[in-house]
Amino acid sequence: MGATAREAHPPVNPLMRAILGLFAAPRINMREDYEKVRRAQRALSWVPRDPERIFDQSVTAHGGHQIPLRIFLPRTASRKGVLLFFHGGGWTIGDIDTYAGTCRTMADLTGQVVCSVDYRLAPEHPYPAGLEDCLEVAETILGHPELAEVDGPEDITLIGDSAGGNLAAAVTLALRARGSALPAAQILLYPVTQWDHDPRTSPFPSVAEYGTGLRLTAAEVSDYVAMYQPDPELRSSPLVSPLLADDLSGLPRTLILTAEYDLLRDEGEAFGAALRAAGTPVRVERVDGALHGFIALPRISRHVGTAYDVINDFLDGGMTQTRELGSPSAGTRR
Rank of each mutant, 00 (worst) to 15 (best):
R75C: 13
D133R: 12
A129Y: 07
V113G: 01
E146Q: 15
T105M: 14
G89P: 13
F85P: 00
A129G: 07
H125N: 15
V117T: 06
T102G: 01
S78N: 07
G94T: 11
T102M: 13
T102Y: 06
D133Y: 09
E139W: 00
D95M: 03
I156V: 15
G130Y: 06
P128V: 09
A107D: 00
I159M: 15
Y127T: 07
G165D: 11
V82Y: 09
L158D: 06
V171E: 06
C134L: 05
D97G: 07
T76P: 03
V137K: 02
T110N: 02
R70W: 05
K80F: 00
T105D: 14
T157Q: 06
L135W: 02
D118W: 08
Y99G: 01
Q66F: 00
A122M: 13
R120L: 10
Y119H: 14
F72S: 06
I71T: 09
E132H: 12
V114P: 01
A138V: 02
I96P: 04
I141H: 03
V114Y: 04
C134F: 04
I159Q: 12
P123E: 13
E139P: 10
P126R: 14
L121D: 12
L147M: 13
N166G: 07
L121Y: 08
T76R: 14
P68M: 03
W91S: 12
S116T: 02
Y127V: 05
Y119I: 06
E139S: 15
A169Y: 00
H65P: 08
Q112N: 05
G111H: 09
G90I: 05
A138I: 03
P126F: 08
T157I: 09
E154D: 15
L158S: 02
I156S: 02
L142H: 09
R70P: 02
V150Y: 07
I96T: 15
D108H: 01
G90Y: 04
L158K: 05
L73M: 13
Q112E: 10
A107L: 03
E136L: 09
G143E: 03
A163L: 08
Q112L: 00
L69F: 04
G89H: 08
E136D: 11
L83Q: 10
G81I: 08
G130C: 08
V114F: 04
I96Q: 14
W91R: 05
T172S: 11
I156K: 11
V137Y: 04
G165P: 13
Y99R: 02
E154G: 14
G160S: 12
L147T: 02
S162E: 12
F86T: 10
T140G: 04
A163P: 12
K80V: 04
V137M: 08
S162D: 15
R75I: 10
A129L: 05
F86N: 15
D151R: 15
Y119S: 10
A148G: 15
D118I: 02
A170K: 01
W91C: 13
C115H: 01
F85S: 05
H125M: 09
P74A: 03
A138S: 15
P153I: 00
R70A: 11
H144G: 05
P74K: 01
I141Y: 13
G88I: 06
I93V: 15
